[in-house]
Amino acid sequence: MGLLLALPGQALAQRRKAPEPKAKAGSPSRRKDFFRIKSPTIRYVRPDTTVLIETKDLPDDNSEAAKSIFFNPAKKLSLVSEDTTTLNEGEQHIVEVSEQVLIDSSWVKVAGYYSIWDTHNINPYRVDGRRLRDTLTLHLTEPEKQRFAKMPLSKTPVTSDFGFRGYRWHYGVDLDLETGDSVRAAFDGVMRISKWDGGGYGNYLLVRHYNGIETLYGHLSKPLVKPGTFVKAGQVIGLGGSTGRSSGSHLHFEIRYEGNPIDPERMYDFPDYKLIKDNFVITSSLFDYYSRALRAKAAHKASSSSRAAAARRVVTHRIRSGDTLSEIADKYGVSQAQLRRLNGNTRTLQVGKTLRIK
């Protein structure tokens, strides 16, 4: 039996199994159902509700979206020898999960499987996917164990692919939706993060799955599940929206392995809205894109530093039905007087027009 909700990808960790208890008289030696959950008790980081600016640009350099790629660990974490319930890595917040699951008639603390349980950082693993040595096969679905996959949305078009966007890399796909549409968990798992990232993802959720991957759902209008909650594939976990750095309602959907983003279109056939295969092979070549992303970022930085004139940042808001000047001022943390001054003393809002904020 593969590890349940294991830290993705560590070959050694995936070979470790919970000890099988002795069967009691009159009871089956192994359970055939998935598992039962005790009420979880978990200490987690409350979201930072600081409202940052929404623009049409890519995530701020200081946003969680921009900081979610770490390939150079300051300290290598061991899955075998380290007690991560007391691990302190500066800003990283490691917690102990007292939730327990029933596996083959034995209650096992989930923290024993997770090793790292961080409700604050998207990528606490500090693993460079380009340096993976092994070829690993992940079982995305296992029907015999009642483990299935669901799509995060109903059939909607992909509005932005995984890859270059301007000079930066877009580490997921954008799926069209209307504000308030249901967003569903892709696989069974436990909610690890529910936070606000004003300079990037807006309201976002991250789920750790039993099959070794994590999925991220960004720009939600409302998250519905708290960290430490067990969710089933297809369960509604949030409502779609356009929070954070977003120019319109959509779902930013990421798939990660040990913190390393994977192109979702390698795993999903989005036109038909289904998995391409029930198994997925992880190799270092999946993450070769990061070298190109680094080169492009370095080239852009060098080009920007050589410019004589300083750039001025202009923030705008596209007016939507129902918007009012006072609501827009509150949203961006500016005064109504400033909005009128920057927009020709306008007092009426026309849907579809652009309003200058700063």
Rank of each mutant, 00 (worst) to 15 (best):
1 M>Y: 12
228 G>H: 06
204 Y>D: 03
57 D>E: 13
235 Q>S: 08
234 G>N: 01
74 A>Q: 09
89 E>K: 04
209 H>L: 08
186 A>T: 15
119 T>L: 10
252 H>G: 11
150 K>T: 12
39 S>D: 11
173 V>L: 02
242 S>V: 00
62 N>K: 07
30 R>W: 06
252 H>P: 11
242 S>W: 09
129 G>L: 00
233 A>R: 08
123 N>Y: 06
271 P>N: 06
65 A>S: 08
85 T>I: 02
318 R>W: 01
85 T>K: 05
172 G>C: 07
181 D>C: 10
3 L>M: 04
26 G>P: 08
259 G>F: 10
65 A>K: 01
30 R>S: 13
223 P>N: 08
48 D>I: 02
25 A>E: 12
94 I>N: 12
157 P>M: 11
186 A>P: 05
160 S>M: 09
65 A>N: 12
103 I>W: 10
283 T>K: 13
175 L>P: 04
311 A>N: 03
82 E>D: 14
15 R>G: 04
293 A>K: 03
212 G>Q: 04
76 K>L: 07
353 K>C: 00
284 S>T: 02
125 Y>D: 00
2 G>C: 01
186 A>D: 10
244 G>N: 05
201 Y>V: 03
38 K>F: 05
335 S>C: 11
199 G>C: 10
216 L>Y: 02
196 W>F: 14
326 S>G: 08
146 Q>L: 10
85 T>F: 01
6 A>M: 06
275 L>E: 06
292 R>P: 00
326 S>D: 08
96 E>W: 10
108 V>N: 02
346 T>R: 15
143 P>K: 04
356 R>F: 11
257 Y>E: 04
172 G>S: 07
178 E>C: 04
3 L>P: 00
320 R>Y: 02
263 D>P: 12
286 L>P: 10
58 L>E: 14
149 A>M: 05
329 A>G: 13
74 A>N: 08
123 N>T: 14
97 V>P: 00
117 W>L: 09
141 T>Y: 13
175 L>C: 10
301 K>P: 04
34 F>E: 13
103 I>C: 06
19 P>N: 14
292 R>C: 00
72 N>V: 06
346 T>W: 02
101 V>W: 14
262 I>F: 07
286 L>D: 10
124 P>N: 02
336 Q>F: 00
224 L>P: 01
303 S>P: 00
345 N>Y: 15
274 K>I: 01
196 W>A: 09
37 I>K: 07
236 V>L: 05
339 L>C: 01
23 A>I: 08
92 Q>K: 14
143 P>C: 04
180 G>A: 06
281 V>G: 08
322 G>S: 10
84 T>E: 09
127 V>T: 09
333 G>W: 11
16 R>H: 03
